[in-house]
């Protein structure tokens, strides 16, 4: 619970339409998700667009179900389920991109969801820069983030980019510094 409080308070202190790199340890993953989707997005009345290239959207949806977080204002761009060739059921709140290498299609799906949720402002979560970096070289990934973040800023959407400390490289840190307004470090309990 301490991580959830810490993260939600840090997010609430952000200026409107900020682009943030959120550095965390893998152990804090679900507490961070709760802080963003349940606390921050709810308080700000935001529609959340969750881009996942780390784990399939169904896994996150199941976790949200356990955490009793309603899906009404949460939408997923799932870039990993199709590449896994799993015959899992499609979820009504998820749209699918064939592969995390199809970065333009990720931008297009985010744009689509923003248009579909036009009555509310958006929170766009990129989960995570580390998994996207597995599938894409640094040049194209930097270009993707630069265009996406600026586009979202123009639409007054918040952007939060997850970075797992355990898998962070110097290149990823430089990339995040370039595109984000701030870097928030999740400390966890002391």
């Amino acid at each position: 619970m301490a991580v959830t409080t810490e993260v939600s308070e840090k997010l609430r202190a952000l200026p409107e339409a900020a682009a943030v790199a959120l550095r965390m340890k893998a152990e804090h993953y679900f507490d961070v998700i709760r802080a963003m989707l349940d606390v921050f997005a709810t308080k700000k009345s935001l529609d959340s667009i969750y881009v996942t290239s780390t784990i399939p959207s169904t896994s996150i949806i199941n976790a949200l179900d356990v955490l009793e977080i309603p899906l009404d204002h949460i939408w997923f761009v799932d870039c990993i389920s199709q590449i896994m060739m799993s015959a899992g059921q499609k979820h009504g709140h998820a749209i699918y991109v064939e592969s995390p290498t199809m970065l333009e299609n990720i931008m297009l799906k985010v744009e689509y969801l923003i248009r579909r949720t036009a009555d509310r402002k958006n929170l766009v979560i990129i989960d995570s820069i580390n998994s996207l970096a597995i599938h894409n070289n640094t040049k194209i990934l930097s270009e993707f983030l630069h265009i996406l973040v600026n586009n979202l800023r123009a639409k007054e959407a918040y952007t939060i980019i997850f970075s797992m400390e355990e898998y962070e490289t110097e290149e990823i840190r430089n990339m995040l510094n370039l595109v984000s307004d701030e870097t928030l470090q999740v400390e966890g309990e002391a």
């Binding site: 931008m107 297009l108 689509y112 194209i140 270009e143």
Partner: peptide
């Protein structure tokens, strides 16, 4: 540009170069 055909119409984003 890269395009997508959606229920809200044709959407376009710049083609990423990325040197590859």
């Amino acid at each position: 540009y890269v395009l997508d055909l959606t229920a809200v119409g044709v959407l376009l984003v710049p083609l990423l170069k990325g040197g590859s």
